[in-house]
């Protein structure tokens, strides 16, 4: 608990988490407002459509999570950290936990905020959260952000440079996973198992077809797992990366 408190103090006494949190919330909720404001009778706002901005928030949260660790390397405060807490695994796990929790909270606020603003703007639209899909589409975003933050911290530990870690994360999630799909024959099979595509399956997968047209929400995932195993797969990927990162950090000179 002490270590968690320490990492919480460290995180909130710098500026980038605040910036990132504000930016992630503003853009996701703003996007939902835009969607609700521009909805019409022929394309009414749906729960899925309120969450259009979630991919943007995901990027910002991953940048925040990566910076939380890479700035420690940049300013060598990682050495002060390991001096105060020589058990590196414990120190880094505490940081990962705090960053992941913050990311999850940002995700929940972003998701429910987006949904909330849409219900305010379009009070007549059917935005009641009824089905498991609808709950996952909103509440599930916090879980995706949380595990994505674990991945980002792990990449940050491995790469140690802000620029490098951010580039790897953003290019991987927003470009490389999609580019791989374009490889003939095998591309689609590989893509089905790429982590962020699978995470997307958790949020968008298994929709109620009567309530949702494809164009009314974030594009669907082509992952073959059903939603909850998809989340487990994504979490498993995050844990594997984290274990690699912790092992490397323990071996390496600080």
């Amino acid at each position: 608990m002490t270590l968690l408190a320490v990492e919480r103090m460290k995180l909130f006494t710098t500026r980038s988490p605040w910036w990132c949190a504000v930016l992630a919330l503003a853009v996701t909720v703003g996007f939902a407002a835009l969607m609700a404001g521009t909805a019409s009778a022929e394309s009414p706002i749906t729960i899925a459509a309120t969450q259009f901005g979630y991919g943007f928030g995901l990027m910002v949260v991953m940048v925040m999570a990566a910076l939380a660790i890479t700035t420690e390397y940049r300013f060598s405060t990682i050495r002060a950290t390991f001096q105060a807490i020589p058990n590196r695994t414990a120190a880094l796990l505490a940081k990962t936990t705090v960053v992941a929790l913050l990311a999850a909270v940002i995700g929940e606020i972003a998701a429910f905020g987006s949904w909330g603003i849409a219900t305010v703007i379009e009070p007549t639209a059917d935005l009641a959260i009824n089905t498991p899909f609808e709950w996952r589409a909103i509440a599930g975003i916090g879980a995706v952000y949380g595990f994505a933050a674990v991945i980002a911290v792990s990449v940050g530990v491995l790469v140690r440079h802000s620029a490098g870690a951010i580039s790897v994360l953003l290019i991987w999630t927003s470009l490389l996973e999609n580019l791989i799909m374009l490889i003939p024959r095998v591309g689609r099979d590989i893509h089905q198992w790429l982590p962020f595509n699978v995470a997307h399956q958790f949020v968008t997968g298994d929709p109620d077809p009567s309530a949702r047209a494809i164009q009314d929400g974030p594009g669907l995932s082509d992952a073959v797992l059903s939603p909850w195993p998809a989340l487990a797969y994504f979490a498993g990927f995050a844990v594997v990366l984290l274990v690699i990162a912790l092992t490397v950090a323990n071996k390496r000179d600080a």
Binding site: K10, T13, R15, F75, S76, R79, A80
Partner: peptide, 9 residues
């Protein structure tokens, strides 16, 4: 090293 401090903290 006196510079092992986050500059914004």
């Amino acid at each position: 090293d006196a510079k092992w401090v986050h500059p914004n903290r």
